[in-house]
């Protein structure tokens, strides 16, 4: 059973930052479905961007986790609600 526990909140600016990365990552993932290696230049740009965006994405969670000292759990993950800026700990029990 999945449980969600409210463990903190980020600022609107911080939320905007991760939301933008989230949107970009979705865009890149979908683009990967339609771009082929034939379009070498663009394909290379996409691969590079996917890597960079993924790194920034994880860096945000690392930085925020450090900053706010959020509770964590083995096998769990953090989730953000973009409407409320709230952070949840999601675990599978």
């Amino acid at each position: 059973m999945v449980t969600r526990k409210l463990i903190g909140q980020v600022t609107v600016d911080e939320k905007n930052e991760i939301q933008m990365l989230f949107e970009r990552r979705n865009g890149l993932n979908e683009l990967a479905k339609i771009l082929t290696a034939d379009n070498a230049e663009l394909y290379e740009k996409l691969v590079k961007d996917l890597g960079e965006t993924g790194t920034k994405f994880q860096a945000w969670w690392d930085t925020m986790g450090e900053k706010y000292r959020w509770e964590s759990a083995e096998g769990g993950n953090w989730e953000i609600n973009f409407d409320t800026c709230e952070i949840y700990l999601v675990t599978n029990e």
């Binding site: 905007n16 991760i18 939301q19 933008m20 989230f22 949107e23 979705n26 994405f57 994880q58 945000w60 969670w61 986790g65 964590s72 769990g76 993950n77 953090w78 989730e79 953000i80 609600n81 973009f82 409407d83 999601v90």
Partner: peptide
């Protein structure tokens, strides 16, 4: 710890 996002609410506010 892996961060995730609530996709259904994902949309910028500007």
């Amino acid at each position: 710890m892996i961060g995730k996002d609530n996709h259904q609410n994902g949309w910028l506010t500007g």
